[in-house]
Design a protein around this nucleic acid. Sequence first.
DNA 1: CTTGAACCTATAGTTGCTACAGGGTTTATG
DNA 2: CATAAACCCTGTAGCAACTATAGGTTCAAG
Lengths: 157, 157
Amino acid sequence: MSEHNAAIGIGELARRAGCKPETVRYYERVGLVDEAVRTEGGQRRYGEAAVRRLIFIRHARDFGFSVEAVRELLSMSDRPDMSCQEVDTIATHHLEEVESRLQRLEALRDELRRMVGQCAGGKVESCRIIEVLSDHQLCISEHDHGGASDLKHGPHS
Amino acid sequence: MSEHNAAIGIGELARRAGCKPETVRYYERVGLVDEAVRTEGGQRRYGEAAVRRLIFIRHARDFGFSVEAVRELLSMSDRPDMSCQEVDTIATHHLEEVESRLQRLEALRDELRRMVGQCAGGKVESCRIIEVLSDHQLCISEHDHGGASDLKHGPHS
DNA sequence: CTTGAACCTATAGTTGCTACAGGGTTTATG
DNA sequence: CATAAACCCTGTAGCAACTATAGGTTCAAG
């Protein structure tokens, strides 16, 4: 390994991983990235390892892994000798969650399509959308609110 | 009439709509449900109208409508004479978001399936999951996040 | 009248960032 | 060398949409 440490600032690091400096500082606070070396003036300086780690983190987050899951994945990838049984477990579990969310979203999409298709542009009193939302009978899924709705992290309207 | 109105407590109301009392109080704070009549001791009492309204809200939330969107839908359903053009607009917009979210989630599922399928249970150093998360080149789909988030990872140079 | 479940308010926590405010540092240029 | 622009710092507050806790009060049954 070359001792050649490019020593980039936090802005450059963030840019390379596709996030913002605030996000990097946030990851540092919660312990996903190590505390950086500082200049005399107190500014953070990073090397290539930090870039790779941050890219890993951003990818995992883009794949929908929670920060906690990323933390586990990271700690495992730091110990290359161990079996990747756990890695597989985490990813499989995550896959299951994604698949169940997909199913619900599909049902939701179908219902929305039906709603929108049936809105004839008349008066609200005969609007199917309002009707569907009001009427318990027309509910897509039975109310099993053991765990709350999974639709919560959506882009806001 | 006031004698006839079943006057239930907040717990019963919440149970009927499939949520928790805290959620109802939260909705009251943010103005989705009206302030309730109180007993002499200060406890909230509700009638059937509140039950219907809360069920409407919970359905809309289950459908993934944001609280802001629900607020609009509610204000429209309060005026049955108006055209449901706006209702349709909100629902259509929401449908588009759901569809775009579905697409991304499907791409994610495919990627996760491939990852999981390729984890042979060996050592972490040769684990495909870790590898995929580390290396952008191995990403098949360019998981392009629509307008939701701006500049994600550009080409690594 | 006593118990205990249900209720009250207020506040803080959750997740994963993002956006300031009000400074200090580094670097490029004149 | 001086200055200006670009960058960086900490700390705090905010976002959605609730959820949880603490510490106290009220209600309804027995």
